[in-house]
Each structure stands twice: as C-alpha cells, then as structure tokens.
Design a protein around this nucleic acid. Structure first.
Lengths: 152, 152
DNA sequence: GACAATTAGATTGCGCGCAATCTAATTAGG
DNA sequence: CCTAATTAGATTGCGCGCAATCTAATTGTC
C-alpha cells in the first residue's frame, strides 16, 4: 500500500477527468484541422454540416440543441457558412421568428468529400471501434449528467 | 440482427467520439463556471493556477507543455492573472529568453478557497470516483495517441 | 382585441486557442 | 570567434463560446 499521496490529491492537475476531457478535445481538434482545412471548414462548422447532412432545412434553434450551442455562437458561424455558399438562411414563413438553414448544392456535395474524415480520425485514435464506442457512450452519459445538473 | 443502419454510419453526429468529447468539455465548463466565478478565474486560468500550486516559479514554456497551450494563448492569459495580482512575471536571469511565473501571496492563498472545487465537480458528475479514474485514464491514453499522431 | 409573457435570433463584449510572424537571447558549427 | 540555426515569448488576426442585452414575432390571459 502507501500509494503516493499525489495520486489521490483531487487538486492535482493529472487527477482531474475534466482536464483529460479538455485536453483530449484540443488533441482531436488538432488532428481534424488538416483534414477539415481541405474542406474549407472549422471543426464547429463541420459539426453544423453533420447536422444538416442528416436533416436539411432546420431552424437555428434545433442545430443549437443538437450541438449545445447558442445563437451567439451560431449566428456568425452560419453567416460564414452562407458566405462560403454552403448553406442558405431564410426566415420561416410559418413562424417569422425562426431562421431555417438549408444546404446549397455545394453544401450537399461536400458530404462526399467529407466521407473519408471519420476513417482518418479512427486511424489516428489507434484503437478498436468497439473500444471507441464504449468510451463514447460513457462520455455521453457523463456529459448528460453534467448538463442535467446545470438545468437545476 | 439488422441493427438500424444509422447506428453504424460513421458520418452521423451521435456516432462520433470526438463530438462526445467536445460536448462533454463544454458541459464541464458550464459546471465549473459558477464555482470559478467566485474565485475570479476562468477555467484555463484555473488550470494554470493548478500547475503553479503544484510547483511555483515555472517558465511559461513548462506551463504550456503541461496544458498543451502555446504562448499565443498563455501570454495574454498570464498578463490577466498578473493584473489580478495572482502571479508575477519575471525574466529569468540565467536565460533571458525565459519568463518565470511565480505566485503572489494572494495566488498562494487562493488555493485554499479553491479546495472545494473538485468535490463539487465530483458531485455534479454523479458517479463513483473509481469509474471516473478509469474513464480519465482511458481518455488520457486516447489523447496521448492523438497527440503522437500530430507529432508525425 | 389588448397587453404581458415567452420565444427565436441578432448583437456586443470578452477570453480563449491557434496559426503566422516577429524579436531577442542562446547554442551550434565552421 | 563569428555567423547560422534554434529557442522562448510576444504580437496580430480570426473563429469560436458564452453572458448579457436587444428586437421582433408569437402565445397566453383576461
């Protein structure tokens, strides 16, 4: 016994799962960067495109709920995607408060070019798909518990 | 068998471990925010303080290596910590290129006020310490494999 | 129907996070 | 030595991420 005290100290950087998650997110971002540069996308823009490739003509609100982002982040991001001719923003006719985001032809076409991205990430992860799926599910469960606390 | 195709589609948002990590990092940040507001720190500033509470009088480079951050991020952040009277920045005498970061009395004192933070995070995580340690180790291992790929 | 409350999105301000570039100090090679 | 290459930080520019605030549209209440 008599493990080093430092391995139990909750105030130590290396003992914090949060720092593990924080630094892993940045590591992923650095791996994605060269792949997404070729598509002309940033990682958050890529996430928005993933949402739209699943379902088109979506209100900003719904994109925000799926990605846990608010209008302060999404409005300028979507304007940049529009400037890049990947999406079109139109006020909903039924509810004038909503802005619907629809893919352009180029936006649809980009899905093909992006098809190899997950494969490259998997390779960089250097671990089995089943292991990654298990980890993903655990992390999602943790995230959802954290988000539940925030909503009181 | 004949599982829904969508659960296998690597281009689906919900199947991406990276998005799990990305969104978990933001969830952590939202839980930390009210706790760190009371200390007058942002989360990245808190990370720097954790490093300094472990070892004082550290060059910027070393802080960057521990947190995976570069001078473009750290220089302004450290200037803000200095403006808040938590650290002092001084050029090293042995190597004039280095800037050493030392805690002020207030910076040292803040460690006590921050002692309850990990406990609150643990509570919000709503899961056992051993589970969190296991997850943390897995995520760190994944992060290190990703970072290894970046360095060619 | 009028007015209050809610909702969707836009805007502003600030702090990262990082690429690219710059300066000054140190080290390496001849 | 003396120059070339490397190294530590600083600076600039841009895109998030989010709190706070604002506007306009919709819904709820009487």
């Amino acid at each position: 016994m008599a493990r080093k005290l430092s391995t139990l100290d909750p105030q130590r950087l290396d003992n914090q799962i949060c720092f593990a998650v924080y630094s892993a997110a940045h590591a992923f971002n650095r791996v994605y960067k060269p792949l997404l540069d070729r598509l002309g996308l940033t990682y958050p823009q890529y996430l928005v495109m993933l949402v739209l490739w699943e379902r088109d003509d979506v209100p900003v609100k719904e994109i925000g709920e799926k990605l846990f982002l608010d209008s302060g982040t999404l409005t300028p991001l979507l304007k940049r995607l529009e400037a890049a001719h990947l999406v079109k923003r139109t006020r909903s006719r039924e509810d004038e408060r909503q802005v619907l985001i629809a893919l352009t032809t180029q936006g649809h076409a980009l899905k093909e070019k992006a098809r190899s991205v997950p494969q490259s990430i998997l390779a960089a992860s250097d671990c089995s798909v089943s292991e990654l799926v298990t980890m993903k599910d655990e992390i999602v469960a943790l995230r959802d518990r954290l988000n539940a606390v925030i909503g009181e």
